[in-house]
């Protein structure tokens, strides 16, 4: 399957919506693999803007935070503050195995205990290490049509 085929909304089983979703990226201690795949979204092959998905650069404009990485203890506070700056409803989508439960870092001390505010905000998870772009897009679109 080529990329173009993968991304026919028909094949994704998703109805195009007339809504839009602005996502902000927050790195919580990743290896840069997930960032790389997130950055692929804006390439013309995927062209997420046609779905109403748009990358924003400040939490004040964000509908959802795309969280990557294991959530290290040092980054919990900046993460919380970013979340506070976001308008309601606050939503997080965790991208990659690391962001879910630590992946291969699971149970080690670099994976911090997440405060309730962050835990409650997690609305979806995209599995994979790193998840390929079309999987991320599918997840974002599901969130958009919710």
């Amino acid at each position: 399957m080529t990329t173009q085929q993968k991304l026919h909304t028909r094949d994704l089983g998703i109805q195009p919506t007339n809504q839009s979703l602005f996502y902000l990226h927050f790195d919580c201690g990743s290896c840069n693999g997930c960032e790389l795949e997130l950055a692929s979204l804006t390439s013309p092959l995927y062209d997420v803007e046609r779905f109403g998905l748009d990358l924003v650069v400040t939490p004040y404009h964000a509908d959802v935070i795309a969280l990557t990485g294991v959530c290290t203890p040092e980054l919990v506070e900046p993460m919380q503050r970013t979340l506070e700056a976001m308008p309601d409803p606050k939503r997080i989508i965790t991208i990659g195995d690391c962001a879910h439960d630590g992946g291969i870092f699971k149970g080690t001390d670099c994976v911090a205990k997440r405060p309730l505010a962050i835990k409650d905000a997690i609305a979806a998870h995209v599995p994979g290490c790193p998840p390929p772009p079309h999987v991320i897009i599918t997840a974002l679109l599901k969130l958009e049509s919710k």
Partner: peptide, 27 residues
Amino acid sequence: KKRNIEKLFTTNFTLLDGWQLAEKVVG
């Protein structure tokens, strides 16, 4: 971003499967 990679090598991985962590140091 500290993930204690060097420590993890010694505690959670053997010589034979350390490659799994090595490729996740810098994606």
